[in-house]
Each structure stands twice: as structure tokens, then as C-alpha cells.
Simulated assay, not measured.
Amino acid sequence: MDTLIAEDLLLLLLDDTKGTVRASSYLASALGGAVLVELALAEAVELEEKTSAWRSAKVRPTGAAPQDAAPHDAAPHDPVLTAGLATITEKDRSPQDLVNRLGKGLKETLTDRLVERGLLERREEKVLGVFPRTRWPAADATHEHDVRRQVRAALVEGAQPDPRTGALVALLAAVDQAHRVVDHEGMSSREVKRRAKDIATGDWAAKAVRDAVAATVAAVTTAVTAATAATAAGY
């Protein structure tokens, strides 16, 4: 099944039974990072070289549409990627800025898509009979299980990930969820986390792509740190 990396990330972070999201406080940044990573893998965007220690590196379009160089089977004219590329084309922005911009409202967009495709079920309910809440339990977890097997093969079995799986693992590492989304019998959580970080910096894509992915992962990690600090402070 053709899905975006952001959709696969969302499926992995959703509890199949409860329909609630792990890492909800920084989910938007993680999903925005997934869109940016996918565009980097498609060679539609690149990270410019830093010319000053006082200026952060910016992301800029390469001039190639996502479908022109896509190395996997994502939908060639996907509106999420098209919208993301349009945002990047507006002006040069840092990865930190972009993961937040691209992630705004993306959970709602992606859950609607996944419901339409029969992968999730939308359940509307009220907590204590008053407060509305939406949950998205799995309706058909076949695709998610396939993705989870690929992630587990890389994290636990030592398989060399393809670029798509490598990028997904890097994003999971950024939100500190790699050890939570796979069964790692025989390995400790610390070992799985270490393996995820090793994969995130591994040689599974061309250098220009890896640089863009690394900058995106760093931006997501910064967003996670900020969200965690804000939660701890009671904001």
C-alpha cells in the first residue's frame, strides 16, 4: 500500500486499541518532520551549506517535483507533499521553522485520509459526558504490521534499512519512541534506543539526503525538548 512516511509514523504512534496518540504534545512537529524528510528523500529539497556560524542552514527546493525523483512508491501527486513543497518554495526557512509549519493541522489531515482508506476508524465520544474526544483505533492493521516488521528488522534483527525505513527510524529516535513501537525481546530499551540513533546517523542514503534528514531530526528533537520542558513547567 502506498503511504507517506508521515502516515506510517502516525500509525506507529497510535495505540491500535485505544486509538490515542503517543507523544501527542509534539506530534505536529514529528509529522512535519516526516514530510520534510520525504521531500528530502525524493530530492525535491536540499539543505544549503552553512556560510556563517551565526546563520542557521536553510532548506530550499531543488526544482524537482517530488514525483520526479521519488525512490519509493508514494503517491506521485500527493497533496500533502505538494503543499509542503509550496511552503518551502515561498522562502528559505530553517528546518526548525519548517517542521512546525508543515506539521500544523497535519494530524487531522492524515487521520482523515487513513479513515477513508479503511486503516483507521474514527470514534467520537464525550469524556464525563461533556468534553468531546476523538479516537482513531485500527480498522485494518495489515499495512501497519508490515511497516512495524521492517522497523523491527532494522532495530532488533540488525538488518540494513532502506532509505525510507532509515528515515522512519530516525524520526522515531527523535521523539524517543523507537523502543516503544516494536517488540524487542532479548534487547533492552536502552539497546534499542542506541540502535535507533546509530541508524539515524547511518549510511543508508546519499550524503546530501542524510544531511537534510539529520537537520530535520535535530529540529524535531529540539521541538520535543521544548514541549517536554513546557509540560514540566505546567504551561
Rank of each mutant, 00 (worst) to 15 (best):
G32T: 10
L98C: 11
D97E: 15
L41I: 02
L98Q: 10
T231M: 07
A219D: 07
E144T: 15
G103I: 13
A170S: 15
W204N: 05
L155E: 00
K18Y: 13
A34E: 03
G103L: 12
A178N: 02
T109P: 02
L114G: 12
T62E: 08
D176P: 00
R113M: 04
S25G: 00
P137Q: 08
A206F: 11
Q160D: 14
D198R: 10
A173P: 01
V224T: 13
P79K: 12
A28F: 09
G158F: 08
E144W: 09
P79Q: 10
V80S: 06
R195P: 00
M1W: 02
K50R: 14
V181F: 06
V80Q: 05
E49P: 02
G166D: 08
R210W: 01
K193H: 02
E43P: 04
K91M: 04
R180E: 02
A40D: 04
D162H: 01
F131Q: 10
K193P: 00
T51A: 03
A139D: 12
S189I: 01
I199Y: 03
T201L: 10
R122G: 09
W136K: 08
E90C: 00
T62K: 11
E38C: 04
W54F: 14
A170E: 02
R195V: 04
E191P: 00
D211Y: 07
E108A: 15
